[in-house]
């Protein structure tokens, strides 16, 4: 049985967010008290152009199940 089939399993998601848009959007979600699952961890970057493919690979390497690049 793979992990994904265990009932209480949930993915670990790393999100890279551009400071000027996606990160600001995540702040706005907070201001509006929008609720979303707690299994996402946001890493702030100054621009989506800053996101090196190496960062994404490292996240998977360290056990992340999903990576969100948003900007």
């Amino acid at each position: 049985m793979s992990v994904a089939q265990t009932p209480d399993w949930e993915p670990k998601i790393v999100a890279f967010c551009c400071n000027w848009c996606a990160y600001a959007g995540a702040d706005l979600a907070g201001l509006n008290r929008l609720q979303y699952p707690a299994n996402v961890r946001v890493i702030r970057v100054p621009c989506s152009g800053r996101i090196n493919p190496q960062f994404v690979l490292r996240a998977f390497q360290r056990g992340a199940d999903g990576v969100l690049v948003s900007g």
């Binding site: 702040d27 907070g30 979303y36 707690a38």
Partner: peptide, 23 residues
Amino acid sequence: NIREQCAWVHARDKDRATPKAID
């Protein structure tokens, strides 16, 4: 950022908000 991106968006999931804040 443990307010906009943690406490405020996980208000109904306190059990997991604290570990997230720690992360």
